[in-house]
Amino acid sequence: MRLFALIAVFITGGLLLYGTADFPAKGDPHSPANAGVPGTGPSISQYFVTETYNDSKVPNMVTAVLADYRGYDTMFETVVIFAAGMAIFAILRVVKGGRNPGTGIHHRLDKDSSGNGDHYDIIVGTTCKLLIPVIQLFSLYVIAHGHYSPGGGFQGGVILGASFILYAMATNLKASLARFSEQRFMSLACIGILIYAGFGFLSQFLQKNFLEYGVLQKVLLTDGPEMARSHSMLGVEVGVAFTVTAIMFAIYANLSSAGDLENGKGL
């Protein structure tokens, strides 16, 4: 059986490698994706390179493609993150008693140290106290600056969520849940999606297509549809960041405590 699996893996890998031989070379200016198909108009990548700035005044065209041209796609990417968090919540979360209490990483850490659920260490604690504000500030920069430099809602949200995870590791899970409670992160995850979809429904309400940001200049009071698109991109990135932050911390909190969101107290 192992031999059969090995042969199957090699055949599949060989076929995949054979398939890549048909790809154009990296950065080939004459490939159809870059140069377009002869007889038709300019290719889509040429359009993005030349027209993104005129369309939306966003210098980072990756963000423009992600949040504007294929905004519908990105919205459901956020929904996928949300669904992943909900699935982990549905599988792991136990409200009372616990399925197998005391097996999470926090239970073990707490049991190994003082036994009262607090494994505060002065070196780790001080380092985190110094680092966490910097991490959070950087994540807000990444979110807000997503359309000028690499970054955006996903990356910034993950970094912001990671700062709460770091706080939970440096002190204990209860301390971080006191600052970012379950009720709060669950509603924040929903609010993020609602912000994103809200931008879509708002433009639909103004009699344009779903997520067609240009029409929002009437609401956002910008001069021209270009700036409306730019500001709407920032808006949806903030929505994505809300969901991703909340779900990252939710996954960690559920995984690390085996679903009961408790410290190792009394075990």
Binding site: G104, I105, F154, Q155, V158, A162, M248, Y252, L255, A258
Partner: peptide
């Protein structure tokens, strides 16, 4: 860097302890 090397490694380690 953020998702792959950062957070998912933490998730894996938290899972290993289970």
């Amino acid at each position: 860097a953020a998702v792959g090397a950062g957070v998912s490694a933490v998730f894996f380690i938290a899972t290993v302890y289970n």
